[in-house]
Amino acid sequence: MKWKEMAKPNKKGPIKTIMIFCAKCRAPLYKYRKGGKGALVKCFVERIVEDHTNKQCECPNCQSTFARETLIRGTPAYKMIGGKVMAK
C-alpha cells in the first residue's frame, strides 16, 4: 500500500465569507473564506480576506488570545481556542 501525502487546502478557497468576532467583547477579528458547514476550528492565513487585529491571535479591543499559530498540512494557520471566537 502506497502512502499518500495529505492534500493541501484549496488555494482559491471557498466563496462563502464569514465574519469572526471575539466572544468576550464582540470586536471584529477577521473576514474569512470558510469551507464546509462545521464549527470554526482553524483559519488558514491565506483565506483571511480582512484582518482587523493589530497583533496576531490577539483581540484588538480586550487583548485576549483567541488562537495559536500553527502549520496544518504545511500551510500556516491559526488554531482557534474553544469558546474564544464566534462566527456569523
Rank of each mutant, 00 (worst) to 15 (best):
A87V: 07
R33Q: 05
I18G: 00
T75S: 07
E5R: 15
Q56K: 04
Y30I: 08
K37W: 09
V45Y: 01
A27M: 07
E5G: 15
Q56M: 08
A87G: 05
V49R: 12
P9I: 06
G13D: 07
C59N: 08
K37F: 13
D51Q: 04
A39N: 08
C22D: 03
K8F: 08
E58D: 15
K11R: 14
Q56N: 10
P9R: 06
M1I: 13
S64A: 05
K31R: 12
L40K: 02
P60C: 00
L40P: 01
K16V: 15
M1K: 14
L71R: 05
P14K: 10
C62F: 00
I72E: 11
P28F: 06
L71V: 01
G35D: 15
Y32I: 02
K4M: 14
W3Y: 06
P14E: 14
M19I: 11
K55Q: 10
M6C: 09
P76N: 08
E69Q: 07
A67C: 02
E50G: 03
L29Q: 09
G82F: 02
K79I: 06
M19D: 08
K11F: 09
K11V: 08
C57V: 04
V41M: 07
F66M: 02
T17V: 15
C57Q: 12
I72S: 14
P14H: 00
K31Q: 13
K55G: 03
K84A: 00
N61W: 05
A77L: 12
K2V: 08
A77M: 06
V49F: 05
I15P: 12
K2R: 11
K31A: 00
K84G: 00
V85P: 01
V45N: 06
C62R: 03
R68S: 03
C57Y: 10
K34Q: 02
K4Q: 15
R73P: 07
E69A: 01
Y30H: 10
K2F: 01
K88E: 15
P14A: 08
R73Q: 13
E5D: 15
A27R: 09
W3M: 11
A39F: 00
K84W: 03
V41S: 11
E69N: 09
E5Y: 12
K84S: 01
C43S: 08
T53E: 05
M80H: 03
I15E: 14
E50A: 04
A27E: 11
F66P: 06
C43P: 11
K24V: 10
K31I: 06
K37R: 14
G82A: 11
I20Y: 01
R47N: 15
L71S: 08
R47Y: 02
K16C: 12
T70A: 09
A27G: 04
I72D: 14
